[in-house]
């Protein structure tokens, strides 16, 4: 299965170098850039950057052993780049004071980055790059991803947890908890979308239920934020801003779930209903 040929390795190396170059060029635009912030912010930013980098190196290592299709590699690198910019870039800075920007950042993570990452099919590379130690980490996650509804419950619980005002403000004020928040979003979203987009034919009904459930409860939360006359997250954040955030979660956020539903139904229709 792992056809490691010269052409593949060259291709992979080429993409990698391009990605590294792009990343370096843009570090100057990063706000929570470990190079420019200070104190706790800097330490937490450094940790996030290191974790992301580590994961990316894992993939690249796997690329050298099992070369991926070019489109998939490009998608993976592109998404990773977007992830780095989202987590460490100017959006993060805006998110400190604007609820709507914060919501955009999180929505990018859970409904753009996570599903596209799943669609880049990184499993052969990650398993090749991670070795046995890596397997200890991603095997349990994959096992959970066999149960779309449980993955949806976990993802939903994490989303609602971090929206409770008390915990939200903890994350806003403490950069370490903020990193934990981002990690939990990315992880649970990744498992959820893996469960949905990699559902076996027998799991299609469960995946559809999980998608609908997630669509419903995120819409519910978004509706509360949109309609509320109360500022949940402190006096400093404007009400209009919060309402916009709610609408982003509800209406804009519904689009990826509908698209996912469309993809699932299309595959189900063609594969099983014939």
């Amino acid at each position: 299965m792992a056809g490691v040929n010269i052409a593949g390795r060259t291709r992979c190396a080429g993409v990698v170098s391009f990605a590294v170059a792009a990343l370096c060029q843009s570090t100057t635009a990063f706000a929570h850039n470990p190079l420019t912030s200070s104190g706790q912010d800097r330490a937490a930013g450094l940790l996030s950057a290191l974790l992301l980098l580590g994961f990316w190196i894992l993939y690249v290592r796997g690329c050298l052993r099992v070369s991926p299709a070019r489109s998939r590699a490009l998608l993976f690198h592109g998404i990773f780049f977007l992830c780095a910019v989202t987590v460490l870039g100017p959006l993060d800075d805006l998110a400190a004071t604007s609820t709507a920007a914060h919501m955009t950042q999180h929505m990018l993570m859970i409904v753009v980055i996570a599903p596209l990452w799943v669609m880049s099919r990184p499993l052969p590379q990650i398993s090749a790059g991670g070795g046995r130690a890596g397997a200890l980490l991603w095997r349990p996650a994959l096992r959970l991803a066999r149960y779309p509804v449980y993955a949806a419950y976990l993802h939903g619980a994490v989303i609602w947890f971090w929206h409770l005002p008390w915990f939200y403000m903890v994350a806003v004020n403490n950069p370490w908890w903020h990193s934990v928040e981002h990690a939990s979003f990315l992880l649970t979203a990744g498992i959820f979308w893996w469960a949905i987009l990699r559902a076996s034919a027998a799991r299609f009904p469960a995946a559809i239920v999980a998608l609908l459930f997630t669509l419903m409860h995120t819409g519910f939360l978004g509706a509360l934020l949109s309609l509320s006359q109360v500022q949940f997250y402190g006096e400093a954040r404007g009400l209009a801003d919060q309402q916009l955030a709610g609408l982003i979660m509800w209406v804009a956020g519904a689009v990826p779930y509908f698209l996912g539903l469309g993809v699932l139904l299309y595959h189900w229709y063609n594969r099983r209903l014939a």
Binding site: S226, L227, L247
Partner: peptide, 19 residues
């Protein structure tokens, strides 16, 4: 997800109306 279009005149937030 469309029910609020029956309530455009009751004082919903402007953003909600637009969406």
């Amino acid at each position: 997800g469309l029910w609020m279009h029956h309530m455009f005149t009751v004082g919903l937030p402007a953003f909600a109306q637009a969406f």
